[in-house]
Design a protein around this nucleic acid. Sequence first.
DNA 1: TATCGACGCCAC
DNA 2: AAACGTGGCGTCGATA
Length: 392
Amino acid sequence: MERRGVKVDRDYLAGLSKTFSEEIAKLEERIYEAACGPFTIGSPQQLGDVLYGRLGLKGGRKGKSGHYSTDVNELERLASEGVDCARLVLDWRQLTKLRSTYTDALQAVINPETGRVHTSFSLTGAQTGRLSSNDPNLQNIPIRTELGRKIRDAFVAEPGYVLMSADYSQIELRIAAHMADVPQLKEAFREGADIHNITAEELFGSVDRENRNKAKTVNFAILYGVSAWGLASRMGVPKDEGSAIIARYFERFPGIRHYIDETLQFVRQHGYTKTLFGRKTHFYPNIRSPNPSIRGGAERAAINAPIQGTSADLIKRAMARMDDALSDAGLDGVRMLLQVHDELVFEVPDGREEEAAEVVRRVMATAAEPALKLDVPLDVEVGWGEHWGAAH
DNA sequence: TATCGACGCCAC
DNA sequence: AAACGTGGCGTCGATA
């Protein structure tokens, strides 16, 4: 079997590491200045003691160890209250994270002979049927921040090829719309409408940027079985408002409420959930635990498992068919390299991009067939470029 | 030196 | 009672 892998630009990563290191050194000086002395910034315990002890700030304890929490929420709060040190530590955390987990770690695992990185995919890595990736994990390469996105540019195609990325668009919300039988959402997906705008209109009666962002948060949170408390905290609104938004959501989309109720009833009785293709995920005995924390966690996972699991089934069906489909189209030179839950990454010979995109799109979009007829189309966004960052 | 829990944070 | 699902992996600090 041919050994596949993705080519990584070592010199580029080395340059990023150096740039990050210079910034980190500057930040450390400024943090020590603001904190009235040196300490181990990377130690949450020490950082908590500095902030709430030496600097005398107000905050709460958390965790089993009884130390102060210094996570991003706490530091953002302090930063907004004018604590310069908190902002500096957040910047320091971002840079050290990128350097240690990505720019340094990836350089260390480049195969010297191939110039490629060879991850391992576990087919049983996740309860829901998703794959997992390890050694190194290539399913958590940064993309959300401008700085993090630079890491993606290190993943390149070999000369004469481009990297092609194919993403399922909103696949979990599409599956939820189908499984929960929500007319407005199914129609929106059929018409290619913006799903978060539809939800914003239903929830708030109008669409602007702020409402759309709130609706987006709600759409995803609902799939995870969020509580009023959790949603309110996530959206930065009072608990009453979170509770009202959830009530309104269920009023507008009663199918979602039905789905949740039916799923919980089934899993409590049988101890497992099923995807649309019939694959089971087991939740016994946690689903009947007398411990509310354990039981509540199992319930939220059970609400999510059929949706996340069906998505996993779909992309695996597409992957199983992909090489033959490419070969049948005379595209043997196309290599499927990575899977990132709703995305496939390929290396495609120059000049064959349009042909490859057509095959990839078709195989992914028809992955449910012939076993299932979905009420919503599966939309696939395809792009390509010299590196992964440019393929989106 | 190796391992582990806690904490924190990257992705979908 | 806890409070948003699925993962992997970095550092710190305690322990063997």
